[in-house]
Amino acid sequence: MKTIKSNCDEEGGKLMPLINLSNCGGKEDCVPACPYDVLEMQTISPEDRLNLNFKGKLKTFFKPKKAYVTDPDLCHACGICVQVCPERAIKLVRNKN
């Protein structure tokens, strides 16, 4: 079993998950792992589908749901979502808000 290390920011909102939808396989590991309910699975939007690379289009054909960020200001930068994603589709980036 994978050891999950958490180093959450007490304030939150400084960093947020950025999801590479071409890499996201829709396995949903990140959604229940997030202690702040920042992520949810949604059917990929037509706009996002246009931006997928070939690998992403192929994955989406089989699994049309992808992880999306619901409220980036809730993110406490614990990095658990990054650690549990088997596709390495998530990274933390500075929140522009």
Results as ranks from 00 to 15, higher is better:
residue 23 N to C: 11
residue 24 C to Y: 05
residue 24 C to T: 12
residue 24 C to D: 08
residue 25 G to Y: 01
residue 25 G to W: 01
residue 26 G to H: 01
residue 26 G to E: 06
residue 26 G to F: 05
residue 26 G to M: 08
residue 26 G to Q: 02
residue 26 G to N: 03
residue 26 G to L: 06
residue 27 K to Y: 13
residue 27 K to H: 13
residue 28 E to K: 01
residue 29 D to W: 06
residue 29 D to Y: 10
residue 30 C to A: 04
residue 30 C to D: 04
residue 32 P to Q: 00
residue 32 P to V: 08
residue 32 P to E: 12
residue 32 P to R: 09
residue 32 P to S: 07
residue 33 A to W: 11
residue 33 A to L: 06
residue 33 A to I: 13
residue 34 C to Y: 08
residue 34 C to F: 11
residue 34 C to I: 09
residue 35 P to G: 10
residue 36 Y to C: 06
residue 36 Y to A: 07
residue 36 Y to P: 07
residue 37 D to P: 02
residue 38 V to Q: 07
residue 38 V to F: 04
residue 38 V to C: 06
residue 39 L to R: 04
residue 39 L to D: 05
residue 39 L to M: 10
residue 40 E to L: 08
residue 40 E to H: 02
residue 41 M to A: 03
residue 42 Q to I: 12
residue 42 Q to A: 13
residue 43 T to V: 15
residue 43 T to M: 05
residue 43 T to S: 11
residue 43 T to P: 06
residue 44 I to C: 01
residue 44 I to Y: 04
residue 44 I to A: 03
residue 45 S to Y: 10
residue 46 P to A: 09
residue 46 P to H: 00
residue 47 E to R: 01
residue 47 E to N: 01
residue 47 E to S: 08
residue 47 E to V: 11
residue 48 D to T: 07
residue 48 D to L: 08
residue 48 D to A: 02
residue 49 R to T: 00
residue 49 R to V: 00
residue 50 L to Q: 04
residue 50 L to H: 03
residue 51 N to C: 02
residue 53 N to P: 03
residue 53 N to C: 12
residue 54 F to G: 00
residue 55 K to C: 12
residue 55 K to R: 15
residue 55 K to Q: 15
residue 56 G to T: 09
residue 56 G to Y: 10
residue 57 K to G: 15
residue 57 K to N: 15
residue 58 L to F: 14
residue 58 L to G: 03
residue 59 K to P: 10
residue 60 T to R: 07
residue 60 T to N: 11
residue 60 T to I: 04
residue 60 T to D: 14
residue 61 F to M: 14
residue 62 F to A: 12
residue 64 P to W: 00
residue 64 P to G: 05
residue 64 P to M: 04
residue 64 P to V: 09
residue 65 K to S: 07
residue 65 K to G: 02
residue 65 K to Y: 02
residue 65 K to Q: 13
residue 65 K to L: 04
residue 66 K to N: 11
residue 66 K to L: 01
residue 66 K to I: 08
residue 67 A to Q: 04
residue 67 A to L: 07
residue 67 A to Y: 09
residue 67 A to E: 05
residue 67 A to F: 07
residue 69 V to A: 08
residue 69 V to I: 14
residue 69 V to D: 10
